[in-house]
Nucleic acid binder design. Structure first.
Length: 918
RNA sequence: GGGCGAAUAGCUCAGUUGGUUAGAGCGCCUGCCUUACACGCAGGAAGUCGGGGGUUCGAGUCCCUCUUCGCCCA
């Protein structure tokens, strides 16, 4: 009826074809009208992908991130939800622009040679031709995205959302143009948000410079700075108002070295009396803190560094930059100025100084604080509801500790600089009238002429921060701002957002704010933050460091499932994953080994099914089930329960108004625990014990029972494992029973627990114990696996005697022994002994092989161990405070255990007595 | 400088509200091609749970402190 499986699982051959079948059958396509929100009967479950940069290629970070999402989505799809995973890409303003600029540089050109329109067109063409590669790559790792809904942040639809958002915020008074110090990248020639200017510790120098006090030849103020080149823009020096040392100088002037002009000494609490000399120079145009001081004191703000970071007299700076320094790069200028100060004796001291310096997150250039006009979003009003969502338990962050980080950021939020002096991105929808020069025109539609005077208009040159489109992602991908959009109605709010903590502020927190502001509802109820992929030295994997692993290499060598399994198994909640890029074989061994094991279980079952499908378990009379059957079904039940606990509640209870219940707030999404529970069931229980136990039965009278249980248990195992290893489980599931053309494990039902026979299952544990005892004896005495030994098992009570008698043959099969059950008169034959936990015992006569001294030593050792355990328990039970204060069930448990150990010890003692005469 | 987290077997990590003999994978040792699987099977070794102090009948788990490392923020 069906072909046997190949001896080796060949993922490269099977997986691609299987993915194509899923896709063609529409397995991953969600239907808005099937959701409960639109009158259907399925609860929606939605994840939006963190959109990779459109020019990106898949790396292990994506491999991890997308596998996690896929596991969750596949789980919910099987659980009966209308599951939707929205894929897409981000136009990635700076990053993509940098790619094209690098191309141009190789051609010896710059973007300015091309001009704006040509540059944008070239970038768009590049994106069209090469972009989105990563989405295709996601298919290779099995990502079950709904490809009918692929989105792009720069598409016409999403661009409309960006404009809508801008206009609404502007109209609400939450967007404004500000003149202040922002982070400037002199290489990308754009401003950056606080989040985009990343700190990195650097070793630098702290220079102490003497500023002579005007009119007091004997006095000077010494200031400390790490950036002497900015002193040309100094407009004051500040001391703390309470600082006695300088109180008399406040209001006086000092002479600015190099420049030679006089600047005032002011009192401001910003000056820290404990840092350096307590005197700080104030450079409002080139330091954000100094800017604040400048505003407080109404100081001028001369600009002495230009956009490429070279010294130049900018606004208000006339006469400040000496001829000899003009045009010098900031770092060359620093050296030159230090030399000049040294020459005039005004350099007091230079000491090494470790400090954090901001760098551009895209090109790593040291960022320059720069005074300029930029657009900002007023964040405090947006943060309020986003904080509320968390405090109200409508939003949770896993692992829990990140919630504090989220709260801290929200509470200290600063306005968001959203304008970028780039060409690749959404142009700011603001027009200025060249005619009447009135208020800027902010519009959803392009503006051709001034609505007031009909004069010519000019659009703002800047584009929006990439994240200004990303923060709308959960809304815009579902159709917002079209409030009629069916997807928006069916699938918003979404459910879980899976990402790395690095973009908690860039993206996650802002999405919550956008969702609350534009939709009146936070965009998801769970933020799942996973760790980072690192190498064995714990260094983050990256292409530039050359310690990366290409997921496609892994897929090629071991299959997507091996990759997925390995990554998920190694991923504790919020922990990093360590992989060795120099040894893929070892790194992915857990996944590869497990997948192979599954394959072979499948082969075994198939080989034993014969031509007819296995009977359904429901059709087997319960009385025909053996202890082994009851045991594996009971283990399956436990495995299902463990998997369900690991995965947790899918969403907060609607009856609680979408608020997480206290007991569930941080529960679930323990994917590594899901893997471990399912693995243990499939391998250690199903394969190691149950499959072995069926071998003698399959050809016999109750072979059909064994087949029914085998197929039932394996089928359930495949279901539990499918979210993690979708390819092999689907392949095997298709093979173990006839399936319709449209029938897929990917949309089969998640297993549910069933009634079970606990007594029979418990009795099987005695069988396992007896087998273990005989195996141990065999190993101890080096009995070759091919050699059958004789063994006798004697039950301590009627019940165990009955069980052992019934199962003697099975015990013999599993332990490679000829087992007889029941009492027998001791005939003095040399034998090895073991006592089981209920006092039953096992005797393996080994004429000639038994070393009596060794055997006695073994038994005495065991007895000693039991004795020490008993002593411990007796001590506890003898302690009156334990008995009175510990919980009753704990005490009862100890009593029960003591009883068991006592029985066992008595049996052992008797053994030792007769055997060793002690 | 502020905040957070981690320290458990050679390595990577689990250890729920304190309660049996602290677990898993990989690696290691011994023996085996047992008619699904050597990417396997059976058996095994290996941890004074970072140091010190405390609370408790009882601490890997709670508190304090020290050390080391990591992350976030300024």
């Amino acid at each position: 009826m069906r072909a046997d499986l190949a001896p080796q699982y060949d993922p490269t051959q099977l997986d691609t074809a299987l993915y194509a079948r899923w896709k063609a059958a529409g397995v991953f396509t969600a239907h808005a009208d099937r959701t409960t929100r639109l009158g259907g009967d399925r609860v929606p479950f939605v994840i939006v992908i963190p959109p990779p940069n459109v020019t990106a290629v898949l790396h292990m970070g994506h491999g991890l991130n997308d596998t996690v999402q896929d596991v969750i989505v596949r789980w919910r799809r099987m659980a009966g939800d209308e599951a939707l995973w929205v894929p897409g890409t981000d136009h990635a303003g700076i990053a993509t622009q940098n790619v094209i600029e690098r191309q141009l540089a190789q051609e010896g050109r710059t973007r300015f040679d091309l001009g704006r329109d040509a540059f944008v067109e070239r970038t768009a063409t590049f994106v069209t031709e090469t972009g989105g590669v990563i989405l295709k790559q996601l298919e290779a790792i099995g990502a079950s995205c709904d490809w009918t809904r692929t989105a792009y942040t720069f598409s016409p639809e999403l661009s409309r959302a960006v404009r809508e958002a801008f206009v609404r915020l502007y109209d609400a008074g939450l967007i404004y143009k500000g003149h202040r110090v922002i982070h400037w990248c002199p290489r990308c020639l754009t401003s950056l948000s606080d989040e985009e200017a990343e700190f990195a510790d650097e070793r630098g120098e702290l220079y102490q410079i003497a500023y002579p006090v005007a009119g007091h030849p004997d006095r000077r103020l010494v200031v400390a700075t790490t950036r002497p080149e900015t002193m040309l823009g100094d407009v004051a020096v500040a001391v703390h108002p309470d600082d006695e040392r300088y109180r008399d100088l406040v209001g006086q002037h000092v002479v600015l070295p190099v420049v030679g002009i006089e600047i005032p000494v002011i009192a401001d609490p910003y000056a820290d009396p404990a840092f350096g000399t307590g005197v700080v120079k104030i450079t409002p145009a080139h330091d954000a803190n100094d800017f604040d001081v400048g505003v407080r004191h109404g100081l001028p703000m001369p600009v002495v560094l230009d956009e490429v970071g070279a010294l130049r007299e900018g606004a208000d700076a006339s006469g400040r930059v000496p001829e000899s320094l003009r045009g010098l790069d900031r770092f060359d200028a620093r050296a030159r100025i230090v030399e000049m100060l040294r020459a005039t004796g005004q350099l007091v001291k230079v000491e090494p100084h470790q400090h954090a310096v901001r760098h551009c997150y895209r090109c790593d250039t040291v960022v320059e604080p720069r005074l300029s006009d930029q657009w900002f979003v007023r964040m405090a009003p947006l943060a309020k509801p986003a904080l509320e969502a968390l405090r109200d338990k409508r939003l949770r962050v896993l692992p829990e500790r990140w919630e504090a980080v989220y709260v801290n950021w929200m509470e200290n939020i600063r306005d968001w600089n959203i304008s970028r002096q780039l060409w690749w991105g959404h142009r700011i929808p603001v027009w200025y009238c060249e005619g009447c020069g009135g208020e800027p025109i902010v519009s959803r539609e392009d503006v051709a002429a001034c609505p007031r005077c009909g004069g010519a208009v000019r659009q703002d040159e800047d584009v929006l921060d990439t994240w200004f489109s990303s923060w709308l992602w959960p809304l815009s991908t579902l159709g917002w701002p079209n409030e009629e959009a069916r997807d928006l109605a069916a699938f918003y709010p979404t459910d879980v957002l899976v990402t790395a903590p690095e973009i908690l502020f860039f993206w996650v927190a802002r999405m919550v704010m956008a969702g609350c502001f534009f939709m009146g509802r936070e965009p998801f109820h769970t933020v799942y933050l996973h760790g980072t992929v690192r190498d064995m030295q714990h260094v983050k994997m990256s292409k530039s460091l050359g310690n990366g692993i290409d997921p496609l290499d892994v897929v090629q060598s071991f299959g997507a499932d091996a990759l997925r399994y390995t990554v998920i198994a190694g991923l504790g909640l919020g922990t990093d994953v360590m992989l060795d890029p120099t040894n893929l074989e070892q790194s992915f061994a857990p996944g590869r080994n497990f997948v192979t094991k599954l394959w072979n279980i499948g082969r075994f079952i198939l080989q034993n099914l014969g031509d007819a499908p296995a009977p359904a378990l429901a059709d087997i009379a319960p009385g025909r089930l053996t202890r082994a059957d009851a045991w594996i079904l009971s283990r399956l039940d436990a495995a299902i329960a463990e998997c369900d606990t690991a995965l947790g509640p899918a969403r907060p209870d609607a009856a609680r108004g979408g608020r997480w219940a206290p007991g569930e707030l941080y529960a679930g999404l323990r994917l590594s625990e899901l893997v471990e529970a399912a693995r243990r069931f499939a391998w250690n229980e199903l394969a190691d014990w149950y499959v072995e136990s069926t071998k003698p039965r399959l050809g016999g009278r109750d072979g059909d029972v064994a087949r029914a249980v085998l197929v039932h248990a394996f089928d359930a195992a495949l279901r539990l494992l499918h979210p993690v290893v979708p390819f092999i489980t689907e392949t095997l599931w298709q093979a173990i029973a006839p399936r319709g053309a449209d029938e897929f494990l990917a949309r089969a039902a998640w297993p549910v627990r069933r009634a079970r026979d606990d007594d029979a299952a418990r009795e099987f544990e005695l069988v396992r114990e007896a087998v273990g005892a005989i195996r141990q004896i065999r190993a101890e005495y080096n009995i070759a696996p091919g050699t059958r030994v004789a063994a006798r098992v004697t039950g301590a009570q009627d019940r165990s005697a009955r069980v052992l008698a019934h199962e003697a043959a099975l015990i013999g099969h599993l332990a490679r022994a000829d087992v007889a059950a029941g009492d027998e008169p001791g005939n003095g034959e040399a034998a090895a002994h073991a006592v089981l936990s209920d006092g039953s015992h096992v005797r393996v006569p080994l004429a000639g092989a038994i070393d009596l001294g060794k055997e006695c030593g073994r038994l005495r050792g065991e007895l000693e161990q039991i004795a020490s355990l008993r002593a411990g328990i007796e001590q506890r039970l003898g302690n009156e405070r334990f008995v009175t204060r510990a919980k009753p069930d704990v005490v009862a448990g100890e009593r029960r255990r003591l009883e068991e150990l006592t029985t066992r010890a008595a049996q052992l003692t008797a053994k030792v007595h007769t055997l060793c005469g002690g």
